[in-house]
Design a protein around this nucleic acid. Sequence first.
DNA 1: CAGAGCACCTGTGGGC
DNA 2: TGCCCACAGGTGCTCT
Length: 271
Amino acid sequence: MPELPEVETVVSYLRPHLEERIIIGFNAHWPRVTAPALPEDFARQVTDRTIGAVQRRGKYIILDLDRGNIHLHLRMTGRLLVLSPSEADRQSHITAEFDLSDSRRLVFRDMRKFGRVGYLDDLAPLEARLGPEPLSPQFTPRVFHRLLQGRQRRIKPLLLDQSFIAGLGNIYVDEALFLARIHPETPASRLTFARTKVLHRAIQDILMESIQHSGTTIINFQYGEGNTGRFREKLRVFRREEQPCSVCGTPLVKIRVAQRGTYLCPACQLP
DNA sequence: CAGAGCACCTGTGGGC
DNA sequence: TGCCCACAGGTGCTCT
């Protein structure tokens, strides 16, 4: 479900509810939610810890603790809610709950049960598996171009690879490639510096615009008390096959790239 | 290194 | 109405 803008939206919602609270208990309703750790081990590591900053890194939500960090990943259908116990008890598909010192609960709901939570003393192992943040000042067109050089992969699967760049998913890759007029199967190393600059700009624009609209709700994404992202109506290609291209009017097409549904304008987007 | 296939899960929508 | 299949915002593993 969530990509960078949706995770950022969730973090903004969670922050005022979690900062300065103490975790007084943890309960896994679905034991694998803490995989590969066991729920009892995770519970021991986080119980009685105070939550400091609430942050995002790629698609991970990071809760800084007075010692160590909790990382949460929503995968496809995960949601995080801060509720009173009576409200929490009414939720379906709960995979885990944290009891907080203000007698509220952080509830992890996840229909498909792909979402995970874990504890790390040090974020280095997580950091090692993630590429740069696309909205960070260090991510410049020149850095991006250097990263692309020598990569024989097609640009779409490469942009989906979290160790190459962190936070992009199926929606925003398709949208950014459309804005940049780049065919998703273009070999990465073929992109000139000029086209790389355009793509860099497209990625940043699409992410910032979506964050402003609290992300995109296709099916499941919600934050807080059932709010949905408003960016869906701004999507130019994603899930719009057969509709006219907003630039040239050619019907948009859906193809499959690296096993993922991929939407593009066959006239505008060039290899 | 690149890519395909499959696994992990549940729900929804389309076709018959 | 009911059944079966494909598909879904993600990621990680194995095998070629």
